[in-house]
Simulated scan of single mutants.
Amino acid sequence: MNKTVQIKRAIGLMSGTSMDGIDLAMLETDGDIIVRRGASSFAAYDAAFRKRLEAALETARSIRARGERPGDLAELETELTDRHAEAVEEFLAREGLSTPDVDVIGFHGQTVLHRPLEALTVQLGDGERLAARLGIDVVHDLRARDMTLGGQGAPLVPAYHRALAAGLGDEWAEEMPVVFVNIGGISNITYIGCDGELRAFDSGPGNTLIDQWVQRHAGIPYDSAGAIASEGRVLSGLANRYLSSPFFTAKHRVSLDRNDFTLPDDSEAGLEDGARTLAFVTAAAIAKAQAHLAEKPKLWILTGGGRHNRMIVEDLTVATRHTGRVILAEEAGLNGDSMEAEAWAWLAVRSVAGLPLTYPGTTGVSEPATGGVLARAQKRAAG
């Protein structure tokens, strides 16, 4: 007997590898095919907190077990959790909602270490503390179980991409296969074949190298719209060095840690040429992903902050011009900024329902696997 479909209101919280702040998004969903997208928001981290998160990446290198919190990581985890709670409280107030109006929160936390070959992934974020403070059930730690079953622990958004693809308008119905490209700190793709085949993997560096480069050389957190890169030229030798990495030639795809690719030496490029070359590398790495797909995509849907970098978009458009069409998520009626946060809301509902979050074609897990830890909260009364 089929279970009665239960529609839940969920909030997704995402703090990605760019470490610039918290994306929030609300959905009404059954965790499957019903997706009603709602409001979204962004809570920026201040520069001092970003520096602490960046320092945490170095501290986390010594972690050998998921529960370890060396140095100041325990204190940082508490503060990060409280910042997420404050962001949710402000979001609810802005939307005229209270905690009883929300069924569950999907809490990603901040990844500080991801070593798939060691089945080790660490996200700072205390789900129990968040649930207790907000009075809302919280699903957290969604990557770990996948790893215990032989998966990479990432990416987790592809199943949500497939749900979105199923709801695309008639204009895009014939544009299959379709690929969703999330250009965050790390870029990853989701391929949805004509037969519904789902395949996903990290394609290479996204914004992280560009952000670090302009921060080092210009003292700004990112290259807005690719303005700096547009003043430079592609240094082919430097680009080829990145693109000849064993990551791109390996037969099997692996998920990446923010530190897997490092910045060029300062002697290798100036500000503009470095930004331009790194933008080219991001686009070329995405285009290289086609070698691991059953068919060439007809449609590329760009999401994440990197879609605002026009040099990345132009380079990818050129690289795929003979086989597909590149569009921004908004052209398909989607929200490219909030999509990952939306996914975490959807995954939280899916986790509570015991449905699969990951698949052999997305993370390499041995079989379709659910996951996540549910932190129950004492529900608060309205008002």
Score class of each variant (00 low, 15 high):
A43E: 12
A47G: 00
A47F: 02
F49Q: 01
F49E: 03
F49I: 04
R50Y: 00
R52N: 05
R52V: 04
E54H: 13
E54P: 02
A55C: 06
L57E: 03
T59D: 05
T59E: 07
T59A: 03
R61W: 00
I63K: 06
I63P: 00
R66N: 05
G67F: 08
G67L: 09
E68Q: 14
E68F: 06
E68L: 05
P70S: 05
G71A: 07
G71M: 04
D72P: 04
A74G: 03
L76N: 02
E77W: 00
E77S: 00
T78E: 14
E79D: 13
H84C: 12
A85F: 08
A85C: 15
A87H: 06
V88T: 14
E89I: 14
A93Q: 15
A93W: 12
G96Y: 13
G96C: 11
S98W: 12
T99F: 09
D101K: 11
D103H: 14
V104H: 06
I105Q: 07
I105H: 07
G106Y: 11
H108F: 02
H108A: 04
Q110D: 04
Q110V: 07
T111Q: 09
L113I: 05
L113T: 05
H114G: 06
R115A: 12
A119Y: 10
L120Q: 12
T121I: 09
Q123R: 04
Q123W: 05
Q123V: 03
L124F: 05
G125S: 02
R129M: 03
A131R: 07
R133W: 07
G135P: 11
G135S: 12
D137R: 09
V138A: 06
H140D: 13
H140G: 10
D141Q: 09
L142S: 09
A144M: 14
A144V: 15
R145V: 13
D146L: 05
M147I: 11
M147W: 10
